[in-house]
């Protein structure tokens, strides 16, 4: 256990000893605060008009808060993916495996460390989303529902989702050790491929059954609210997993890509 503790401490130091984690965090927090605040102001201002999109008062606040994970998860995935691809890129796998020759121990320590870092990103993302969102809802006289336990359950599930996404990033980085390729895959999949697949899957009942297992859909199910599922739901075919099922799907993806990566790159010769 103490050996695992050493490997875990080492992985935490690796995250905190370069500037990347806080630069990414600042960008994420600013992005979420602007979007959540902007959306709260937009819907707050449209609240009384009849021709704007109508979202009832009590469902608006959770939607605004869900900007935390829905906009933030890409940062969590990138944090995890960069943590592993940096080891390949800068050839630091050599000293890492010299200090800890048991490679499985290194991979598990990395997954645990980055899951923790992802949870921290989740906390920061929710501070940004709830802070900016609730502030502007209040300014427009809308109840931010901060007294509602459901709101805080959503915050907790959002932090969990961010933690799991970071672990997925670690696994992805092991499966795709090329840093450029990993970043391209993360951005292309999260920003382009998956949204299209989710929209396409909502056209029929049987495709929706498959579509709910897409990672972004599973994440939305875990969080419990998102603009995307609202849009999909409006389309008629939106099917959602239970929140815990969504969490299990994300966990399953993290484990799957890590195990695949173990065989394709992690246990290979380090030259």
């Amino acid at each position: 256990m103490s050996r695992f503790g050493g490997a875990l401490r080492s992985e935490v130091t690796k995250i905190t000893s370069t500037r990347m984690w806080w630069i990414l965090a600042i960008i994420m927090v600013a992005y979420i605060a602007v979007c959540a605040g902007g959306a709260a102001a937009l819907f707050g201002a449209l609240g009384d008009s009849t021709n704007g999109p109508s979202i009832s008062g009590e469902s608006l606040a959770p939607l605004i808060y869900s900007f935390g994970p829905t906009l933030g998860y890409v940062f969590a995935v990138l944090l995890g993916a960069l943590a592993t691809t940096n080891e390949f890129r800068h050839q630091t796998l050599t000293p890492t495996f010299l200090a800890t020759p048991r490679r499985g121990r290194v991979l598990v320590a990395k997954l645990v460390a980055l899951t923790g870092a992802g949870a921290l990103y989740g906390v920061l993302a929710m501070i940004a989303a709830v802070g900016a969102g609730a502030g502007l809802l209040l300014a427009f006289g809308i109840d931010p529902q901060l007294g509602d336990p459901d709101t805080w359950a959503l915050v907790g599930r959002s932090v969990l989702a961010m933690a799991l996404w970071s672990a997925i990033g670690v696994g992805l980085g092991v499966l795709v050790p090329s840093q450029v390729a990993a970043i391209v895959i993360v951005l292309a999949f999260t920003q382009f491929v998956e949204p299209i697949l989710r929209l396409a899957s909502s056209i029929a009942e049987w495709t929706a059954q498959i579509g709910q297992f897409l990672p972004g859909a599973a994440s939305d199910a875990l969080v419990g609210a998102s603009f995307f599922s609202l849009a999909a739901g409006a389309g008629g075919g939106g099917t959602m997993l239970e929140w815990w099922q969504g969490g299990l799907v994300l966990l399953g993806i993290a484990v799957l890509v890590s195990v695949l990566g173990w065989f394709t790159s992690w246990r290979r010769d380090v030259t």
């Binding site: 050493g6 080492s10 000893s17 630091t92 010299l98």
Partner: peptide, 18 residues
């Protein structure tokens, strides 16, 4: 085998901990 953005002391610290 170094991360260029990490200080030498922190580079060594990570492996000292491991």
């Amino acid at each position: 085998s170094f991360h260029p953005g990490r200080s030498a002391a922190n580079h060594l610290l990570t492996y000292t901990q491991a």
